[in-house]
């Protein structure tokens, strides 16, 4: 099963490698991992997407909690939550498909943020599935480059992951 785990970790040198190292050493799978400082500069927040049986995910969570630098974590999968991922796609354009592409981008609520006579850069946020769906819609041969941030997430409602 896919799990999305949000982690508050001390913003120390090497914090990221502790998490990444844990996953490679123990053979756990990481689908994506994002990290950035929070409003409290001493803390970083990571969002980690992983897949595994319930037993494995239970171990993953225990092992993450065991890292001395991890302050708190939550398995968002277990709560009502929102997920967003940012994607930038560079697409080759020829005159006759530019309009069509623009309307697809509109339907997906994306934005065209760079235009040249032969290309567009599209910015899009959404769940990872939505981004997958957009990619599937665009002609494969016209895609020059895709950059995705990996998923980030937050729980719904007033409760939050903080100290």
């Amino acid at each position: 099963m896919r799990h999305i785990i949000a982690i508050l970790i001390e913003n120390e040198a090497g914090a990221l490698s502790r998490v990444a190292g844990l996953f490679s050493a123990r053979g756990y799978n990481i689908e994506s991992l994002t990290v950035a400082p929070t409003e409290d500069a001493s803390l970083s927040r990571m969002t980690l997407v992983t897949r595994g049986s319930e037993d494995i995910v239970e171990q993953i969570i225990k092992q993450l909690n065991k890292l001395i630098d991890v302050v708190k974590l939550i398995d968002l999968q277990e709560t009502v939550h929102i997920e967003r991922e940012l994607m930038l796609v560079k697409i080759k354009t020829v005159d006759k498909v530019r309009d069509e592409l623009r309307s697809v981008v509109d339907i997906f609520r994306g934005k065209i943020i760079d235009v040249t006579p032969t290309s567009y850069v599209v910015e899009m946020t959404g769940t990872s599935e939505k981004l997958d769906a957009f990619i599937a819609t665009v002609d494969k041969n016209s895609i020059i480059e895709v950059v995705r941030s990996g998923a980030t997430g937050i729980s719904r409602g007033e409760k939050g992951l903080h100290l």
Binding site: A13, G14, S17, G21, I68, D69
Partner: peptide, 16 residues
């Protein structure tokens, strides 16, 4: 050293 020992320590520090 911090990198080499990461998987076999409870924790490690680099003093800055």
């Amino acid at each position: 050293m911090v990198g080499i020992t990461r998987p076999c320590v409870k924790h490690n520090f680099l003093v800055s």
